[in-house]
Nucleic acid binder design. Structure first.
Lengths: 145, 145
DNA sequence: ATAGACCTTAGAGTACACTTTAAGGCAAGC
DNA sequence: GCTTGCCTTAAAGTGTACTCTAAGGTCTAT
């Protein structure tokens, strides 16, 4: 498969696929005799994985580190686990923000009949409803990490 | 409250709060006689909201549009609903990627004892497990929107 | 009253992640 | 054999979202 087809399948532009190969987010891709990339299912998986992680909010730099730890499979067990744990925490925090954002939009869509006087009133209303992870507006200082 | 305290409470830097005010992600902030910003709970809510939406992956531009629709509360009902719906879809797609990423990391952490020969093997293993939203690797072309 | 820590603005600078350009090669169809 | 459409590389350019700098003002404590 050539790069254009791979691009259509993954939703990642050809340019970005080349860029990802260059910086190591996907491994070196085999070439045909003519030097043209010959992309197989294994590479498609890696492109999709990179896309997914990037979309999830992992930086290119962290994704590089992450991948290097696995591709160069030395005994960096502890280092791996630390990076994993750290990234997991970042993503979980992002997930909470994302969930709150989705709830906000869903709430708006459900309540678009009712008229609220101010944006602030609405935000307040929403905070009331989010008594799942109960979070005060602020405790004392240094609330956000 | 001054901008530094607001920054500590929200986790958004003072510079970014000023920037958000300038571009309209938070409304004009009241000043003391000396010209210094006097930040109240209402503004804290708006800063937190902006931070949340940004972290969730909404662009500054879309967030501006979104906020303008509410602050200038004219009869743009349909326009509002369209923007809402559109943003909701973007965020839901992001959530799916994020969920997959979190699953990947969680899987890694759970299986760090077992040694997998290749990254690809592992990705494949994971795809097998994700038969929740069953997604083939690709159907025909034009899989990703 | 001088230092230190906060604040203000406008505008320049930076980091990140692509994206485009330039210059050229290969292969198929008319 | 020439156009079309794909491909290649290296390097320069772009867009987004901050982040920093310069030049100056105010407030509190010593």
């Amino acid at each position: 498969m050539n790069i254009k087809e791979a691009s259509q399948i993954t939703g990642v532009s050809s340019e970005t696929i080349r860029y990802y190969e260059k910086i190591g987010l996907v491994p070196p891709i085999d070439r045909k005799e003519t030097g043209v990339r010959d992309i197989d299912e294994r590479i498609i998986r890696r492109i999709n994985f990179a896309r997914q992680m990037r979309s999830a909010g992992m930086s290119v730099e962290n994704l590089q580190k992450y991948i290097q730890l696995f591709d160069a499979d030395e005994n960096n067990q502890q280092e791996q686990l630390d990076l994993l744990q750290e990234q997991l925490e970042v993503l979980e925090e992002k997930r909470d923000d994302l969930t709150a954002a989705i709830n906000h939009l869903t709430f708006k869509l459900a309540n678009h009949g009712k008229h609220m006087t101010t944006f602030e009133e609405e935000l307040h209303e929403l905070e009331q409803q989010q008594q799942k992870h109960p979070k005060p507006l602020y405790d004392d200082v240094d609330v956000k990490k």
